[in-house]
């Protein structure tokens, strides 16, 4: 692991609250920088990557800082991507897929959790292999959905 990553105290506190280790984030960003599997928003100078790690996914938003990067946020979610059903190409964003420079738009992806498959909106593009769940979707909508699925499945 070679990257230099600055994590400010307020971001470190968020990581702690979410149970995310700094080394996991460093490994993720290192992988994103090596493979270019990331989205880039040049208007805000932000980078965003996401990757399945074991039975969950880890996402990180970061920006260049000095010879390395500064972490903006990181979050996890447990639903696993199983496919993409719709590309809503007119709902555009400022993100582009770093490997192809393709514009990132809203998509509808198929997700699986505890054996249940349901759809949820995310961001992606036709050449992106991965659907990216925005932080609010992952930490609010999907987090509650995961809890309700656990409860309903057990009811």
């Amino acid at each position: 692991m070679t990257i230099n990553l600055v994590i400010k105290p307020e971001v470190a506190a968020v990581l702690k609250e979410r149970g995310i280790k700094e080394d996991e984030v460093k490994t993720l960003i290192d992988w994103a920088e090596t493979t270019k599997e990331k989205f880039v928003d040049s208007t805000k100078n932000l980078h965003w990557t996401t990757k399945a790690v074991g039975n969950a996914n880890l996402s990180a938003v970061y920006k260049p800082a000095g010879t390395g990067f500064e972490l903006v946020t990181a979050y996890g979610f447990k639903v696993m991507q199983k496919g993409i059903t719709d590309y809503i190409t007119e709902d555009t964003t400022d993100w582009v897929y770093a490997r192809t420079n393709e514009k990132v738009t809203r998509i509808t992806a198929d997700w699986e959790y505890i054996g249940v498959r349901r759809l949820a909106s995310a961001l992606g593009c036709k050449s992106c292999p991965t659907a990216y769940l925005e932080e609010y979707m992952a930490t609010k909508t999907i987090a509650i959905a995961q809890m309700l699925l656990e409860k309903k499945k057990g009811s």
Partner: peptide
């Protein structure tokens, strides 16, 4: 309407 925002409980 198929372009609506979707959640797991739609």
């Amino acid at each position: 309407w198929k372009d609506l925002i979707m959640s797991p409980f739609t």
